[in-house]
């Protein structure tokens, strides 16, 4: 028995970002912040953002505790979303939710490419929320809320 079969879920990029999330930092100066909770497992993720003068999201930082999937998802989210205007981020989030729910990687959204390693989550329904938790927090922050709903 080995764990080769879980490589679809735990690809190297996920293990790497899950172990050492490079964007995990609490921004001291920020324009909006929101937290998400996964009540099933107690995982938490707080996202803080700074807007650039043009209205785009210039800087994103997160502070989280959680599993490899949620940590990697948060880290990859920062890479994919930074520098984009809020409406692009909302569209990207929508595509990302589709990706992790269906596993379908055919989207034409180029920003989604960096997130495709998370498509394997679709095979593990109980883990989808791990991947979407940081996104829920980011979307709540964009909407000016401080708490993400758990759904």
């Amino acid at each position: 028995m080995s764990f080769d079969a879980v490589r679809d879920l735990y690809q190297d990029v996920i293990l790497r970002h899950g172990r050492n999330p490079v964007h995990m930092q609490r921004l001291e100066v920020f324009d909006a912040a929101a937290s998400g909770d996964n009540p099933m497992c107690g995982d938490r993720c707080e996202v803080r953002i700074q807007y650039a003068p043009d209205g785009a999201v210039g800087t994103i930082g997160f502070d989280a505790r959680g599993c490899a999937i949620s940590m990697a998802s948060a880290d990859l989210m920062v890479e994919a979303a930074t520098g984009r205007p809020p409406e692009d981020i909302r569209a990207l989030a929508s595509d990302f939710y589709g990706l992790v729910r269906t596993g379908d990687t055919a989207s034409e959204n180029t920003a989604l490419a960096a997130l495709k390693p998370l498509s394997g989550v679709a095979e593990y329904p109980s883990r989808i929320k791990c991947a979407t938790l940081p996104w829920a927090a980011l979307l709540a922050a964009l909407d000016g809320q401080t708490e993400a709903s758990s759904e």
């Binding site: 028995m1 764990f3 079969a5 879980v6 879920l9 735990y10 172990r19 497992c41 995982d43 959680g66 599993c67 490899a68 999937i69 593990y124 883990r127 791990c130």
Partner: peptide, 14 residues
């Protein structure tokens, strides 16, 4: 180095 959920998912695979 291993979150409980990751442990459970890996064990479940076997």
């Amino acid at each position: 180095g291993a979150h409980a959920h990751d442990i459970a998912t890996l064990l479940d695979r076997n």
